[in-house]
Write a protein that binds this DNA or RNA. Structure first.
Length: 217
DNA sequence: ACCCAGGGTCATA
DNA sequence: TATGACCATGGG
């Protein structure tokens, strides 16, 4: 370590100063965020954007329209996002879930625990996708953790490199004020930061957090 | 040509 | 419960 260990909040402030406001999640509707969360699974966002544009152009960006669209037809329009047969099935599942529970106005009344349980029961929705929807659609203070978050913060010496998703999520939620807007921007900054770092390691000499890193690892 | 991206499911041991 | 195969496009 080249200097005293910073707080979790200080790292956030540094990223925000360097990268500016992120404004996540970019979308025109709640449902579009849900669709994007599924389409971006293991997929670069640039490829997801094309699929979202295609869906809008075909007037498929509503749960009703998506349910009515056949799986092969749906797959055709999300081709650019990769794994399209799998994702077409997942979009049908999440569309049925969203529509059958009364969409945003009804679901937004649910307590967070019920919302999370319900989402995790939907085919194609795992912990990260569920939390992204809970945070960016329903504005609950749940911290979204991804693979890069784990690599970065274990390199920074805050957590063990093989800690669980839940423990890492708990780490952020207990070391920051419980604020959905803050959590949303923080996760966005971590993802954005990953793009400017060399691919084989979560930091390098040009990394804006390099002075905090433990290069002995 | 290879590796990865804003993961999750399913089969196997 | 813990790995591994699989999905599949587009950019580096």
């Amino acid at each position: 370590m080249n200097q005293q260990k910073p707080s979790i909040k200080q790292i956030y402030l540094r990223l925000r100063r360097q990268q500016g406001e992120q404004g996540w999640w970019p979308a025109d509707s709640h449902f579009e965020i849900i669709v994007g969360a599924v389409l971006t699974q293991n997929t670069a966002w640039t490829n997801v954007e094309k699929a979202i544009q295609s869906l809008k152009q075909q007037n498929l960006m509503t749960p009703q329209a998506m349910i009515a669209c056949s799986r092969p037809e749906l797959a055709k329009h999300i081709r650019s996002s990769g794994t399209f047969n799998i994702k077409a099935k997942r979009l049908h599942a999440i569309s049925r879930w969203y529509f059958s529970h009364g969409e945003f106005s009804e679901i937004s009344n649910w307590p967070t625990a019920k919302l999370r349980r319900s989402l995790l029961a939907v085919h194609g929705v795992g912990a990260e996708t569920a939390d992204a929807i809970i945070l960016y659609v329903f504005k609950r203070p749940v911290f979204v953790v991804d693979a890069y978050t784990k690599r970065l913060f274990s390199r920074l010496g805050f957590v063990d490199e093989d800690c669980s998703y839940e423990s890492l999520r708990g780490f952020f939620e207990s070391n920051l004020e419980s604020d959905a807007a803050l959590f949303g921007e923080y996760h966005a900054h971590i993802v954005e930061h990953a793009k400017h770092v060399c691919k084989v390691r979560p930091y390098c000499e040009r990394c804006s957090l390099s002075e905090y890193c433990d290069f002995s690892k």
